[in-house]
Every structure is written in C-alpha cells, then in structure tokens.
C-alpha cells in the first residue's frame, strides 16, 4: 500500500479500536528484522519501546531503502506508515516529506501518549538526518 492508500483506509475507519487494528495489521505486513540487524547503532533513541532502523540507497545508488522493526505491534505499524512515506523516494524528494505532519493530520499524534508521539518524531528526525548525510 502506498501512503495515500493507507491514509484513505485509516480515515475511513470509525473509532480508535478499528484504527489501531489497521495500524497493527500494517505492522504485521512489515518484514521482521533478523536479530543480527537489531544493533545498538540501529536503535532509535527517544522511543519508549525498542525501534531499529537502517537506511541506505538502492543498488543504483539512487532511491531510498529503509528497513525497520519494533518490539511492539503498534509502533511497528507506525513504522510501516513512516516507511511508506519515504521508501523508494530520491533523497531530495524525501527531504521535502514531513511524516510527522502527516501523523498530526491523521490525528494520531494527539491520541498517542507524548512519549510515543515523540517516538514518531525521533524516527522521522533520524531518517532526515541520515538522508542529509547523502548530500
């Protein structure tokens, strides 16, 4: 699913139980990282749960490839949404994408506890910092 489909799908659901269920299902579709990739370097600081994230360019050294995982189902679902925002973009395109603003738009930030909301912020900041390193 691309990010527009995710957004439409989430907006069509009524109530938080249904929305979280959908987020969790998105997380389920995201492949798990092997333990060897769950390194301390890959860990995103500022999240209450464990989040690991790797970012690189594809074999042509053009487009972004981000893989990530979390030990909680909901945060893994949030990661799936964030990855849908950035994956396969050119770094200069990705720089203009603000996934945090999108979460705010979907009302997700307000509903998640601040530490979790900040988790989303920390993940997005991490991605942006790593993208800047490519340029």
């Amino acid at each position: 699913m691309d990010i527009n489909q995710i957004q439409t799908q989430l907006n069509s659901l009524n109530g938080w139980q249904a929305k979280y269920r959908e987020i969790m299902l998105l997380g389920k579709k995201l492949p798990s990282l092997p333990d060897a990739l769950k390194t301390q370097d890959a860990q995103v600081q500022g999240c209450e749960s464990n989040v690991w994230l790797h970012l690189d360019l594809d074999e042509n050294q053009e487009r972004l490839v981000i893989i990530a995982d979390s030990d909680t189902r909901i945060v893994k679902g949030l990661l799936a949404i964030i990855l849908a925002c950035y994956n396969n973009l050119l770094p200069q395109e990705a720089k203009l994408v603000d996934a945090y603003a999108l979460f705010e738009e979907m009302g997700l930030i307000q509903h998640l506890s601040p530490s979790r909301g900040n988790g989303v912020k920390a993940i997005v900041e991490r991605i942006q910092t790593q993208i800047s390193a490519f340029q």
């Binding site: 139980q17 979280y20 969790m24 909680t72 189902r73």
Partner: peptide, 13 residues
C-alpha cells in the same frame, strides 16, 4: 505481547 500494545488497546475502551 508488549505491555505498550495492551495498554494502548485498553485505553480505547
């Protein structure tokens, strides 16, 4: 199961 997932779902009730 992660405690955060359980607590987050409970909050929706």
């Amino acid at each position: 199961e992660h405690h955060f997932d359980i607590a987050t779902f409970l909050n929706t009730y």
